[in-house]
Design a protein around this nucleic acid. Structure first.
Lengths: 213, 213
DNA sequence: CGGTCTTTATAACGGCGCTATAGGGCGCTC
DNA sequence: GAGCGCCCTATAGCGCCGTTATAAAGACCG
């Protein structure tokens, strides 16, 4: 792979740097002034390039936003994985709920772009992020504490946390409203079983919780 | 009030008709081609008026959309009230959940406009619609079957149904996915109590469920 | 019947996403 | 090391957008 190191030449490196500059400018404008204020012309001014450069590297405005959203998903995933989960997988899911909301409130414009646009096919970054949630749910199933099939539980949990996040972002109530805790604990309670008595040595019950696909 | 009937003259009636024509054209374009395809020029063409007419009557494009959204909330509210609820208030809430999703899937563009835009103050139409949901929840509290304060239960239930609706609209899974039923029943189970045994004559328990404010 | 004021049309401004065209400079080949 | 080819970027402009200054037309009041 690294046979011809010089093949990553000056021009290619400069191209990559230009792409990064454009992406950074786009992300900054989105975070500061929202999606509606984002114009290619302003990205040009902030990044110090002209329009054809952007169109050469990204195709069109929607594709440029898609690349920003990809980066958001990566960052989102990283945020959710940060602070390794507590030992109890149910508690890990519960704290994931809170961190999910925190991310949405910290990056409302990005969150809306990530989840409110209809897309024909989810991007790989979005799938990876969804897979992170599914793994948390699967960890609960692995110790025999999931009441419903993994896929259904994952989707249901995601619905709940997305509902709280997007309505809070839309400004219908203040962050930290009691409804958030209510929804979180309702889903946890309904989707999972309490931990078995500690005198049982094997944490996983012999009857698994995964349904037949 | 109707002292001077002639004060509603020809001009006023024509103005009202013009407003209706413009609103209908806007709604039709939104439903058919989505928010991004909505342009004032196309509304003009479809409604048979010119731009200054629209700006005279509505102010700007955002205000025009606001008026359409107001009408959507009225229609939304009417849809949820249709088919009078079953006797059991818990079952009424459950069927309200399904009808809410049905409306969102039938009018995805309108639904997004109603609930995904950040607004400083909710419109009266939106408040009236929210109040309809709160009354359904309050009816459960009135028979002593609500586990949490009315306001919190209303907000939590709304979060849940909005989460299911908006993610389904965004295309993350098919309508009717099992997650919807799961979320619905989880919220119902956690927010409400089962009906008391029928041999007790008084349906409402003496200890009310409403919290303090 | 004349004046006023609401309502509408004409035409244009500035900004948008996007691109046809062309030129400059790096990298490859000999 | 010289020349060429191609990737990348800039100039300038197209068609569309939301919005509005100006002014004409006509319903209402006296």
């Amino acid at each position: 792979m690294a046979v011809r190191q010089s093949s990553v030449g000056l021009r290619e490196r400069e191209s990559e740097s230009t792409r990064r500059t454009i992406l950074d400018a786009t992300e900054a404008i989105l975070a500061a002034r929202g999606e509606e204020a984002l114009s290619i012309r302003e990205v040009c001014a902030r990044a110090g390039v002209t329009a054809p450069t952007i169109y050469h590297h990204f195709g069109d405005k929607a594709a440029l936003i898609d690349r920003v959203v990809d980066a958001c998903f990566v960052e989102f995933d990283r945020t959710l994985r940060a602070r390794p989960a507590p030992g109890d997988p149910v508690e890990a899911l519960r704290s994931g709920f809170d961190r999910y909301i925190d991310y949405g409130l910290a990056h409302p414009t990005h969150y809306r772009l990530m989840f409110s646009r209809r897309r024909a096919h989810p991007t790989p970054a979005a799938l990876a992020s969804y897979d992170g949630l599914r793994r948390r749910v699967a960890a609960i199933g692995a110790v025999g504490r999931l009441r419903v099939p993994i896929e259904e539980a994952t989707a249901a949990f995601w619905c709940a946390v997305h509902g709280v996040t997007s309505l809070t972002i839309a400004g219908f109530w203040q962050p930290g409203a009691p409804a958030a805790r209510l929804v979180r604990d309702a889903m946890i309670t309904q989707l999972t079983r309490p931990a078995p008595f500690p005198r049982r040595s094997r944490p996983a019950s012999p009857r698994g919780s995964e349904g037949s696909a």
